[in-house]
Design a protein around this nucleic acid. Sequence first.
DNA 1: TCGTAGTTGTACTTCCAGTACAAACCATGA
DNA 2: TCATGGTTTGTACTGGAAGTACAACTACGA
Lengths: 208, 208
Amino acid sequence: MRKLPAKLASQLYGAAELIAERGLDGTKIEDIAEATGIPKATIYYHLDGKNAVLEFLLGDLLDMIAGAVGVAVASEENARTRLEAAVQAQLGVMLEHPSLCRALVGDLGRATRLPELAAALRTAFYEPIEQLLAEGVSDGSLRQVADPGAVALSVFGAITLAGLSAAVEGPSADPSADAARLSAAVSELVLDGLATPGSRDQRRSEPL
Amino acid sequence: MRKLPAKLASQLYGAAELIAERGLDGTKIEDIAEATGIPKATIYYHLDGKNAVLEFLLGDLLDMIAGAVGVAVASEENARTRLEAAVQAQLGVMLEHPSLCRALVGDLGRATRLPELAAALRTAFYEPIEQLLAEGVSDGSLRQVADPGAVALSVFGAITLAGLSAAVEGPSADPSADAARLSAAVSELVLDGLATPGSRDQRRSEPL
DNA sequence: TCGTAGTTGTACTTCCAGTACAAACCATGA
DNA sequence: TCATGGTTTGTACTGGAAGTACAACTACGA
């Protein structure tokens, strides 16, 4: 797989909608050729087959997310505030690229089986959150939890599912407003939880 | 698709590991035939192709989850406690059937494109949580949130991702202990959030 | 004993990913 | 101007796997 001229790369995005709709299986190479305007022979000249098309598209999405989250996480605020920013950043990118997201869910299996993508997935989503959790404990803005790995994963899940489902609902008129609304809801959950103060004492209290 | 004799159904589970490992694409019908001991012709006699195999397996998993969560949700406790029980129930089932879970992630795309599965997914995961959220507001054990739909989805995401990743880690020696540990972590997140009390006032306070 | 439903092997068709290859097409620089 | 080498593209082909057809066989109940 060579490094794909810019023009072709941009044309390739024309296949995202198609793949999101039908899945990669349901999409023939000829369909992709037609949708993108790149002839089949040319696709095969540059890419190692159908999977590589998906790999390219998703790699790009993941890079965008990793970039946006990276920026959000790098500020001078406390970890808690940066976590909110990260949530918003991730959801912002996701809602701006709904069909890439749909393609991602749809062919997640293939994606995680493609080793490079699995790694990109880790760096885009999971690692920044895990990092933040640790820093929040240091700066006192986030609680210490018993199993940080599991919690990071859950937070990741909470954000991602929310974004994914929004993406599946279909593209919205104002993605950034939606992202703001959604990320408020998700941050609220992740930071403050759902329990009422009153119900808290019904629990066997074990300080962590 | 007729209603599959019990013997064949049980044999079909022999394909779960295979599909989890390689994905449905990477698995030939002949492979499934060999792994399950059901000849290809017989598979086609009962099922409408490869997708139907997946549909059957995942439908079963989803039924199990829906069942377990349904029981958890039906108790007399307050909503908060039932939410904890639901988390534990879902994770319990997931960790007991890791390869089905792995197959589910891997071919989620196909799954959500299969309409019946999408519906099963909704009833297994999403609806009970949404329901619980509403009841928690009534009985005072859970907070009122601005966007219950989004929050339900996020909670679902938090639980599911945790379970999925545990399933991917490979089967454990003691699934129920793992489930207990994991669900404690997830419940902690979902109920109490991550913010420290101290950091809470740094926020523009708007009573919901 | 017959009929009906399931079981299975074998051979076939169809479809599509991926390959081969040759002809054009373009840039570069000599 | 021409030669060279990467790129582009059409066309035809190969191979493999999904799904179908069908006939022979089994088992069971009426």
